[in-house]
Write a protein that binds this DNA or RNA. Structure first.
Lengths: 341, 341
DNA sequence: CTGAAAGCGCTTACAG
DNA sequence: CTGAAAGCGCTTACAG
């Protein structure tokens, strides 16, 4: 029994009907007599026939395949987004392919070629951390892609651009973290990670400043250090901050832009013998799976990343041009304590 | 300028040639006169034309799309494999889609349908942790898929089955870990995770026993506890083992089947006030990104997962029916010490 | 309710 | 070196 080779013609011949009729039962159309339907279904089952989505795509112009572009799957934050998106896509009958970030920001010959050639039904792009040096290029690529296929963004929509998107209210998240630390009596609160305020698409650093303002706490440059979102970078950043400050001015609490950065801060504090949380409280963001297993267990913000990914798929497929925001929650663990003294 | 809508006919018309000629320059065939080639290329550039991989797939029977099935992308171990596979696929001009594990082990109507309908050029299946209760079902699904498309496995090939595969020498890895701990003076070495020996596809537990034998150390049931590969499970497993033993018989070293399990063990030891590594050494496996940031930093086995994924793609595309093994290395960190006393 | 026919956008022999 | 034609496996009006 030849498998996987049967075509709609074979089924039609077996069932003694036309291919149009086979196509009708395949697509579940109503106007087929029960007897005919049965004959066709039997023939399909007998040959283990699966219609080719390729041929279907050629005529119907719909491929039922989606793409997603993420900075780095190795950061579990993105793996969560991807998982949520993939599962939702599957539910809706779509396939999800991962494309590398270089599909957008490379100078190489027309990096988006692959995306277009595939005739995707839609594309999700996670622009949470737009690489500052390639920002223009990426945005130009997105504008162009948008003309060819639906695009929805995860992360902040750059001002002046019109895309459907689902994002976290990063500023509000960080304001809540500041308020939380203030409620524990902290006044010297530092923020590590991200880029300078005016070009910060993530706006976590912006929320930090707003949080300070609301708490009537002064903003100090020495408590604000920028770095990439990795553990190594976070570690170096905290080290630089502490080195530049007399110990009596050291912050009593640090907010890390994400859990990776927080992990680096933890390691640095440990190496310096700074007891955590007694001398230094720490809050991360993203609530990675390892957060409960760090020492001390890391307080973080869970922003429902799987749901974010799923929602992006829904927007993509429904075609709504909406900009949605996910809710979040602060997950308290052992890395924060009341301010000493 | 209508974009993304141009077809090969438009280009042919623009360039004043036949579509066969356009097709030739598209595919980079040699037998086209320079002048003609130039005309065609200009027309292509002018309309920003991208050939439809869908239409191409219909005729050529090649879709340049691959699939991969993993248990769970949220475990960074799999994210590494996926990343390696994806990047290699991209390099070779292929697209990589993630399919959920349920594509194989569900009782739902013909779960593999989506895989077949897509007419993938090949499929990678990561069978490292075959769910014992669905094993038959999964293997049957794989056998069937293999008749329709090339399949390569990551992980151990079940005995009696013939698949190209790339796997880790898990038994040898664990033997090395045992030898390492023995070299530190440990004699009471426990192993946590996996399933009973005779149905252990991963064979890490098997390697543990072999390691003991080589070191002429007795195997004791009380030092061997089975559990799923999660932190929660690892934690509960260590707790159960310690509860069942008088403290003077507690192991001085624990090998966790993977880093997730190790994280759970760390947490449990910490809660019980067992100092690590002074009273208890710990080794994980997979060398997740967080291993250096745990406390104490976790000694683990790095088995080059990205390379594993990349290699699987190469086998898939080359069509070689080989069974390859990846090398690995023990990464020493702070979670192991000389045995006390 | 069913079928004949055109068409989707390419590739691939086959001629020339 | 180039083109006319058939074909890939479906869907979609259009007739009946």
């Amino acid at each position: 029994m030849a498998e996987g080779n049967a075509t709609i013609y074979d089924i039609a011949a077996d069932a003694g009907v036309s291919i149009a009729t086979v196509s009708r039962v395949l697509r579940g159309e109503a106007n087929v007599s029960p007897a005919t339907r049965k004959k066709v279904q039997e023939a399909i089952a007998r040959r283990d026939y699966r219609p080719s989505s390729i041929a279907r795509g050629l005529t119907s112009k719909v491929t039922h395949s989606l793409g997603i572009i993420l900075p780095k799957l190795l950061n579990p934050h993105y793996a969560m987004i991807f998982t949520g998106a993939q599962e939702e896509a599957r539910k809706l009958g779509y396939t999800m392919s991962l494309f590398p970030w270089s599909s957008l920001d490379t100078d190489a010959y027309d990096p988006a070629t692959m995306l277009v050639e595939r005739r995707l039904d839609g594309l999700i792009v996670c622009v949470e951390y737009l690489p500052a040096d390639h920002e223009e290029q990426v945005l130009a690529a997105l504008q162009q892609l948008k003309r060819v296929m639906p695009v929805v963004l995860i992360g902040c929509v750059p001002p002046g651009y019109d895309f459907p998107a689902v994002s976290n209210n990063n500023a509000a998240m960080m304001k809540e973290v500041v308020a939380y630390l203030v409620s524990l009596g902290h006044e010297r609160i530092a923020f590590i990670g991200g880029v300078e305020q005016d070009k910060d698409p993530l706006r976590r650093g912006v929320g930090y400043r707003e949080g300070l303002r609301e708490a009537r706490l002064p903003y100090t440059d020495s408590y604000r250090v920028y770095c990439k979102g990795t553990a190594e970078a976070g570690r170096a950043a905290l080290a630089a901050m502490l080195d530049a400050l007399k110990p009596e001015y050291w912050p009593t609490a640090v907010i890390a832009m994400n859990d990776l950065v927080a992990m680096g801060c933890q390691a640095e504090a440990r190496d310096r013998g700074i007891p955590m949380p007694e001398q230094l409280s720490l809050v991360g963001c993203d609530d990675l799976f390892c957060a409960p297993y760090l020492y001390p267990a890391l307080t973080s913000i869970n922003s429902h990343q799987q749901q974010t990914g799923a929602r992006a798929v829904q927007l993509l497929i429904s075609g709504e041009n909406k900009h949605e925001t996910c809710d979040w929650e602060l997950v308290e663990r052992a890395s924060c304590a009341r301010a000493h003294i």
